[in-house]
């Protein structure tokens, strides 16, 4: 085996050992902390920043209210588009 190949092998081994070392020694308490919050609140819903799990609240639908002209329907409303 030539020297350069050995160097690459040693590099990979060191990288692998470093990662394995981190995995074995880094006893993170993330699970324990999360569990404590879940035990207190009895809620395990993940804090995702997406709206798929949230309720669709009518007051957030901007097409439904116009603070300046409450009676004016916005043009993207189906009722307005198909009005004769």
């Amino acid at each position: 085996m030539i020297k350069e190949f050995l160097t690459y092998t040693i590099f990979l081994t060191v990288l692998l050992l470093a990662v394995s070392g981190h995995y074995m020694l880094n006893k993170s308490d993330i699970n324990a902390q999360t569990k404590k919050i879940a035990q207190l609140t009895k809620i395990v819903e993940p804090a995702f920043g997406v709206s798929t799990l949230e309720n669709r609240l009518p007051h957030l639908d901007k097409s439904l209210d116009n603070s300046v002209y409450p009676d004016m329907i916005t043009i993207d409303r189906v009722g307005f588009v198909y009005a004769k």
């Binding site: 999360t34 207190l40 609140t41 395990v44 804090a47």
Partner: peptide, 15 residues
């Protein structure tokens, strides 16, 4: 503030 490590469920939580 709640512990940052529990942020997976507590990031947007107010107790």
């Amino acid at each position: 503030a709640l512990n940052a490590k529990s942020s997976l469920i507590s990031n947007d939580m107010i107790i």
